[in-house]
Simulated scan of single mutants.
Amino acid sequence: MTDSFREGGVRVRERRDEDLDVCAELLRVVHEQAGYPINWPAHPRGWLTPASRLGCWVAELDGRVVGHVVLTAVGERAEVERLFVDPTVTRKGIGRRLLDHCVTAAAGFGRELSLEVVDNRGAAVHLYRRAGWTETTRTPIDWGGEHATELIRFSPPART
């Protein structure tokens, strides 16, 4: 799916191979400052490119990569994964634009969409709720250590 749109100075486009180093470094900053992902991956570039991906996109602001998201196939469904935004540009609607892009892409693939987040991600949970996503379930986890005890599943807002 080749899709790109620009709104408010932010452009969402397909991620290219040459973006991976920038995305991996941005992921490190997000991990250090915001604790995402909760467990640092042994191979960040590979983690950013799961085999089950339907698409990978980045958000650019003034030509600089400032966000990332992956849409993966989970059976017949799609799931938002690997969503993060540069901490220096949060609260500018970038995460919301990446989420909206996934809603559109999943519809284009004819798949129902969802996402999961660990309960330590207060800012992420607030983003999803502000964007109209609805919490559907909570599942206990044992891999979050003292930082997270539940996995929260969300469904997207109804399409109009």
Rank of each mutant, 00 (worst) to 15 (best):
V30I: 05
G95E: 07
L27Q: 14
V118G: 05
T134V: 13
I152M: 07
V103H: 05
A73W: 01
P44L: 12
V125A: 09
R11K: 08
I152P: 09
H126W: 07
L26Q: 09
T139F: 02
A131Y: 05
W47G: 08
M1A: 13
P140V: 08
G75F: 04
P87D: 02
G63N: 09
T2E: 15
E25W: 01
G95Y: 08
G67L: 00
C23R: 08
N39R: 13
L71S: 06
E14L: 14
L48W: 12
R130W: 01
P37L: 07
E79A: 10
P44D: 07
N120C: 08
R130Y: 05
G63P: 04
A59S: 13
A123K: 01
V118A: 07
A158E: 11
K92Q: 15
E32D: 13
S4F: 00
R159E: 04
E150Q: 12
P140G: 11
V103Q: 13
L71W: 05
A106M: 07
H68A: 00
V80I: 02
S155P: 09
L113P: 09
A34K: 03
F109V: 11
R28A: 03
D3C: 01
G75R: 11
R96M: 04
V69A: 11
V10H: 00
T2Y: 07
